[in-house]
């Protein structure tokens, strides 16, 4: 399950029955202090995955060397079982959006992103997992489907995938594709981790749009799609992301156990 600051004390005090924890890398970039101490102690008892939300590998602007240095330092310290980033970009012209922005799915952007993934893997000395993001717009001139873009990224960079089933569902609804077709296009053995999350359904100009919010339980449609993903990709480690309006730890543990029970 996800390790969030609000639950740090309780996790250490109660040692919940979960298989592993995932931490947002940037939240532990500090030189010292309580948060980093907590993650170190969690690591003594459980496997930990580090999930980056700020590197924006698909940005055309130069890679932030300081960010990379801090990530590499954290990876060396924590020795996570997985290091993941997103198939996204986030900054241009010196301004960061601190968002996971969708890639234009062109051959040019694929070459760029694959090279950046290669740079990251070289810097860390290990394979990384790349996660599909939710999106509310698509760029014109796409030369790949979204899943085809992921498959090409895997082939070109040698990365693995973190498949966010909620994001697949959200994008399938927002952009009108079939989630099962999306799964069909992914390389079977590249999916090493799965994310689930809750999302919001809203309307703009009378049309429905799904917004990825991470602030509520996983909906039944996404659970059903997850069952399908497990049948295809096997029992890969699964994490439920809950970042806003955090419920009590016990509810997160129960959601995590539900995910483990689906085989």
């Amino acid at each position: 399950m996800g390790l969030r600051a609000a639950h740090h004390r309780e996790v250490l005090a109660t040692a919940p029955d979960v298989g592993w924890f995932e931490a947002h890398s940037e939240n532990y970039f500090a030189d010292g202090g309580a948060a980093l101490d907590t993650l170190s102690r969690v690591r003594e008892r459980w496997p930990v995955a580090l999930h980056g939300v700020g590197l924006g590998l698909g940005s055309a602007a130069p890679l932030d060397r300081e960010h990379l240095r801090r990530l590499a330092r954290l990876v060396a310290h924590i020795e996570p079982w997985a290091v993941s980033e997103h198939v996204c970009w986030g900054h241009a012209g010196g301004r960061h959006t601190n968002d996971l922005l969708p890639m234009p799915r062109t051959a040019e952007s694929l070459r760029h992103l694959a090279a950046r993934v290669g740079e990251l893997q070289d810097a860390l000395g290990r394979q990384v997992l790349l996660e599909n993001v939710s999106s509310y717009l698509e760029f014109t001139g796409a030369q790949f489907t979204e899943a085809g873009y992921l498959a090409a990224l895997v082939a070109e960079s040698g990365c693995a995938l973190l498949l966010d089933v909620n994001n697949v569902f959200v994008n399938a609804r927002n952009h009108g594709f079939d989630a099962e077709d999306y799964f069909d296009e992914l390389p079977l053995d590249a999916v090493r981790e799965i994310h689930l999350a809750g999302h919001e359904t809203t309307r703009i100009a009378g049309r429905e749009i799904r917004i990825d919010t991470h602030d509520r339980p996983v909906c039944e449609d996404v659970w059903a799609l997850y069952a399908s993903a497990r049948r295809r990709f096997g029992p890969v480690p699964t994490l439920i992301e809950w970042d806003a309006a955090l419920p009590p730890l016990a509810i997160l543990v129960a959601e995590a156990q539900r995910a483990d029970a689906i085989g």
């Binding site: 940005s59 055309a60 602007a61 970009w89 900054h91 241009a92 012209g93 301004r95 959006t97 922005l101 234009p104 062109t106 040019e108 952007s109 760029h112 717009l137 698509e138 760029f139 014109t140 001139g141 927002n174 952009h175 009108g176 049309r207």
Partner: peptide, 30 residues
């Protein structure tokens, strides 16, 4: 398609409320 660096620069400018001429690079369906 617009070059990646150009598209990203315009997109960020647009988010910051500056004139950016990005609309043509975004699909208007659905």
């Amino acid at each position: 398609p617009m070059r990646l660096d150009e598209l990203q620069r315009r997109f960020v400018a647009s988010l910051y409320g500056e004139p950016a001429d990005i609309e043509g690079a975004i699909r208007a369906d659905g």
